[in-house]
Structure formats: C-alpha cells, structure tokens
Design a protein around this nucleic acid. Structure first.
Length: 168
DNA sequence: GGAACGATCTGC
DNA sequence: CAGATCGTTCCC
C-alpha cells in the first residue's frame, strides 16, 4: 500500500469543487487522484454542464445520472460502449447536474498494480492516458460511483501543492 | 417491448 | 478506420 503523495497532501475541500465546472476543470489539473495504493496526477479534464447537449444531464435527471445531480465532491462513474468506465468529479451546486470528466492522469505510484489491470505489455505512457484506460488501471467501476472524494475514503482527490499549469 | 446510440479503445 | 459490446434512454 503506497503512501499518499508527499508530506503536505490534503484532500481538496468540497467548497472548491462546488464551483462551476468550467472553473473547476482547469483548477483540477495537477491535482492528485488517489485510489487505494495507486495514485496519479490529473493532466487532462473536460467540463460537462447540463446546458451542453453532450452532457448526460442535458435531458434531465435519470437513474444513471442522479449522482451528477447530487452534491459536489462525489465520483460519478458510468459505463460506456459496453466495455469502458469513465470517472467524473461532480461539481457545482447540488441539482445543477454538472461534473468534470477526468480524461487522463500521469501514473505516479502503484504502477505494477495498475499494469496488472491493463492488457499485458501496456507501456507506462499508455497506462492511464484516456478516460477508459485510467478507470481500468485504477480499478474504478460502477461500484465506485457516488463515493465522496473529499473525505478519507478509498478514492480521494488531493492537493499536494503543485499548482495547475498557467497555460492549460 | 424494442431499437438505436454512445463523454472509448484497440488492432488491422 | 471499423468492430467490439451492453447499459441506458427513448419511442412505439
């Protein structure tokens, strides 16, 4: 069980992810996603709000997307194309139906564990460089949907002090 | 009750 | 660039 990043790591506050998704998205870059003994740095994200046709919440609340209409700071995982999982961090005020999709992370710790969940021979650079890939590498499934990432649970969103890039 | 369609990934 | 593969949603 690898330890979390470094000395000054704190779970992000719910207030900071309760802002608008378009504001939270760039801020999430370089934050740390921890799942058990595995963790990596977020390097690509995408904001989804209910006013965008592509968003799962565009046509209102359904059983699947209900987590997105809940309070910020929870994980929304969905199953896509019958074979991939994708993970989002719910943002905004409860009821708004917004979230930020984590599109890619740079793997930092727990690499062997991540590799064991990916196809044999997967290069380190290809381990978590896509929304479906990172969920497979981290072992995130529908069972993780709804988890609070602002607490001390198995899935945590942390800040180790590295600022987001100036030019995203 | 059924059909169409993905916030994707991989291999040809 | 097409196929894999199935839950969710929407329409009849």
């Amino acid at each position: 069980m690898a330890s979390v990043p470094s000395a000054c790591v704190r779970v992000v506050s719910r207030a900071l992810v309760a802002r608008d998704a378009t504001e939270v998205a760039p801020w999430l870059l370089n934050k740390v996603l921890v799942v058990g003994g595995c963790w990596g740095r977020i390097v690509e994200v995408e904001a989804y709000r209910s006013d965008e046709p592509a968003s799962h919440t565009f046509r209102g609340r359904t059983p699947r997307n209900s987590v997105m209409f809940g309070p910020a700071g929870h994980l929304y995982v969905y199953f896509s194309y019958g074979m991939h999982h994708c993970a989002n961090v719910v943002t905004g005020a409860a009821g708004e139906g917004q979230a930020v999709l984590v599109r890619a992370i740079t793997p930092v710790a727990g690499l062997e564990e991540m590799r064991s969940r990916r196809p044999p021979g997967t290069a380190e650079a290809r381990l978590t460089d896509g929304p479906g890939k990172l969920c497979q590498a981290l072992g995130l499934t529908l069972a993780d949907s709804g988890r609070d990432v602002c607490g001390d649970g198995p899935v945590q969103l942390c800040d180790d002090g590295m600022p987001p890039p100036e030019r995203p």
